[in-house]
Amino acid sequence: TTVHIGNVTYHFDNPEEAVKWAKEMAEKLGLRIEIHGDTIRVE
Protein backbone atom coordinates (compact mmCIF):
# COMPACT_ATOMS: atom_id res chain seq x y z
CA THR A 1 0.00 0.00 0.00
CA THR A 2 1.38 3.42 -0.90
CA VAL A 3 0.53 6.78 0.62
CA HIS A 4 1.23 9.90 -1.44
CA ILE A 5 1.61 13.29 0.24
CA GLY A 6 2.62 15.88 -2.33
CA ASN A 7 5.73 14.54 -4.07
CA VAL A 8 6.58 12.11 -1.26
CA THR A 9 5.56 8.45 -1.36
CA TYR A 10 5.46 6.18 1.69
CA HIS A 11 5.14 2.39 1.48
CA PHE A 12 3.27 0.26 4.03
CA ASP A 13 3.03 -3.53 4.19
CA ASN A 14 -0.18 -3.30 6.23
CA PRO A 15 -3.07 -1.47 4.49
CA GLU A 16 -4.83 -0.73 7.80
CA GLU A 17 -1.70 0.97 9.16
CA ALA A 18 -1.44 2.99 5.95
CA VAL A 19 -5.02 4.25 6.22
CA LYS A 20 -4.62 5.07 9.91
CA TRP A 21 -1.37 6.96 9.31
CA ALA A 22 -2.79 8.81 6.28
CA LYS A 23 -5.82 9.95 8.30
CA GLU A 24 -3.57 11.25 11.10
CA MET A 25 -1.39 13.15 8.61
CA ALA A 26 -4.43 14.57 6.83
CA GLU A 27 -5.82 15.88 10.13
CA LYS A 28 -2.49 17.48 11.09
CA LEU A 29 -2.10 19.12 7.68
CA GLY A 30 -5.75 20.11 7.28
CA LEU A 31 -6.08 17.97 4.17
CA ARG A 32 -8.28 15.08 3.11
CA ILE A 33 -7.50 11.57 1.95
CA GLU A 34 -8.59 9.75 -1.18
CA ILE A 35 -8.33 5.98 -1.40
CA HIS A 36 -7.93 4.34 -4.81
CA GLY A 37 -7.44 0.60 -4.33
CA ASP A 38 -4.05 0.23 -2.66
CA THR A 39 -3.06 3.86 -3.29
CA ILE A 40 -3.91 6.55 -0.77
CA ARG A 41 -3.51 10.24 -1.58
CA VAL A 42 -3.42 13.00 1.01
CA GLU A 43 -4.43 16.28 -0.68
Rank of each mutant, 00 (worst) to 15 (best):
I33C: 07
K28H: 10
H11K: 11
K20H: 07
T1K: 06
G37F: 04
F12C: 03
H4E: 09
R41M: 12
V8K: 15
P15Y: 15
L31D: 05
T39A: 07
G30K: 04
A22L: 03
V42M: 12
K20G: 06
H4L: 14
H11P: 03
G6C: 06
G37E: 06
H36C: 08
K23V: 11
E27G: 06
K28I: 13
I35E: 04
I5R: 02
G30C: 09
I40R: 01
H11A: 06
G37I: 03
H36Y: 14
D38I: 04
A26E: 03
W21A: 02
D13V: 10
A18N: 00
L29K: 04
H4G: 03
E17N: 07
V42H: 01
R41L: 13
N7Q: 11
T1N: 04
M25R: 04
I35V: 10
E43G: 15
D13Q: 11
T2G: 03
V3T: 01
F12P: 00
Y10K: 07
H11N: 06
I40S: 01
N14R: 07
N14A: 06
G6I: 06
I40A: 01
R32P: 09
E17W: 07
A22R: 00
T39G: 05
M25P: 00
A26T: 03
I5D: 01
V42P: 02
E16L: 11
L29W: 08
T1L: 07
E27N: 09
D38H: 12
G30L: 05
G30N: 13
V19L: 15
I33Y: 12
E34W: 10
I5K: 02
H4C: 12
H11M: 09
E17Q: 10
T2K: 13
D13W: 09
P15M: 15
V42R: 01
T2V: 11
V3Y: 01
P15L: 15
T9H: 08
K23C: 11
V19D: 03
K23T: 14
A22Y: 01
V8R: 15
F12I: 02
E27F: 10
H36E: 13
K23S: 11
M25T: 05
L29Y: 14
E16T: 10
V3C: 04
N7K: 13
L31S: 13
E24I: 12
L29T: 05
E34L: 07
K20L: 11
A22D: 00
R41Q: 05
K23L: 14
K23I: 12
E17P: 03
Y10G: 01
E24A: 13
A22P: 00
M25V: 12
E16W: 11
I40P: 01
D13G: 08
T1W: 13
Y10T: 04
T1P: 05
G6E: 08
D38R: 06
L29E: 07
V19E: 06
P15N: 12
P15F: 15
V3K: 00
E17M: 09
I5N: 02
E24L: 13
F12D: 00
D13K: 11
F12W: 03
A22N: 00
P15E: 10
T9F: 09
H11C: 09
P15A: 14
H36M: 13
G6Q: 08
H36F: 14
E27M: 08
V19P: 00
A18M: 03
W21Q: 01
K20Y: 07
D13M: 10
V42T: 04
D13F: 08
A18Q: 00
M25Y: 08
F12M: 02
R32K: 15
N7H: 12
L29P: 03
H11V: 09
V8C: 13
